[in-house]
Amino acid sequence: MTNKIEIAANSALLVIDVQKGFDDAAFWGPRNNPAAEANIAELMDAWQESGRPLVLVQHASRPGGALAPDLPGYALKDFVAERAEQAALHVVKSVNSSFYGTPDLADWLTAQGIGQLVVAGIQTNMCVETTARMAGNLGYDVLVPLDATHTFDLAAGPGPDAPRLTADQLATATAVNLQGGGFARIVTTAQLVEEVRVRADA
């Protein structure tokens, strides 16, 4: 984990798929990091206070999916919805990468002259990791506060012999993939908030 981070004045915070459908434990199974929502809220508040841009990303599942637009699970969690007016952009997507949505995220970032992204939300190893990987490939400076994400236990297939990883194991793999692979730097919410507020007070 890096100790020294610098937050650009126009660094964009991407809050990905923080939707009510992920609260269905019977559907998703065990999750990790119960502090994720509080950390995401803290980041959103710090970004708003510092005047940096917030981007909300919302997943629209295909019909029958837990996050389908016609189901209650599509809605943003209350703490995100309460802060939604802060958002400079609201992207809707139906795949893992936030760069394949509407409006076009890359076009907006280019128009705003934004080169640094902070990527948080749900799920750590799915839409967060995919978005961070693609952002790294596109040349953005990417920071991922792992403690402002969460995921769920996952098996490779049905049956007792299918390989399975816990949510914590998957989060660790994401951290290794992103930082070890050079896609992003893994940081903490506290590091980001401290840096944002120190620079605001300077």
Rank of each mutant, 00 (worst) to 15 (best):
T172M: 06
W47R: 02
D24N: 15
E129T: 09
P145R: 09
T131V: 04
E42Q: 10
L117K: 01
I122L: 13
P160F: 01
N125D: 15
P103N: 09
Q112V: 13
A155H: 01
A106K: 14
T166P: 05
R199M: 06
G121Y: 04
C127N: 05
S61T: 11
T124W: 09
L13K: 03
A167L: 13
G101N: 03
K93F: 07
D168R: 10
H90D: 14
G101M: 00
T166G: 15
E82Y: 10
V187T: 14
L67I: 14
F22Q: 01
T131S: 13
D153K: 11
L154F: 07
I122A: 02
V187G: 12
W28R: 02
A66Y: 07
E42I: 06
G182D: 09
D161A: 08
A156L: 15
V176A: 11
L54V: 13
G139P: 08
K4M: 02
A148P: 08
D45P: 10
A66R: 15
A162G: 10
S97P: 07
A12M: 06
H150T: 13
A9C: 04
F152W: 12
A36S: 12
E42W: 01
T124I: 01
I7V: 15
P158V: 11
M126Y: 10
L117D: 07
V92D: 05
T130Y: 01
Q123W: 01
T172I: 07
G64A: 03
V80A: 12
D153C: 05
I7Q: 05
I7D: 02
Q112N: 12
N10F: 02
P158C: 00
D168H: 00
E195F: 00
K4L: 00
G113H: 04
D168V: 12
W108H: 11
L105K: 13
A173R: 15
A135P: 01
E82H: 12
L89G: 05
F79D: 04
T174E: 13
V198M: 09
F183C: 01
N137A: 12
A190C: 10
G64T: 08
R199C: 08
A60N: 15
Q19G: 12
A66I: 13
P163Q: 06
A190N: 12
L13P: 00
D147L: 03
Q112H: 14
F183W: 05
V196P: 03
P69D: 14
L56K: 12
L165P: 11
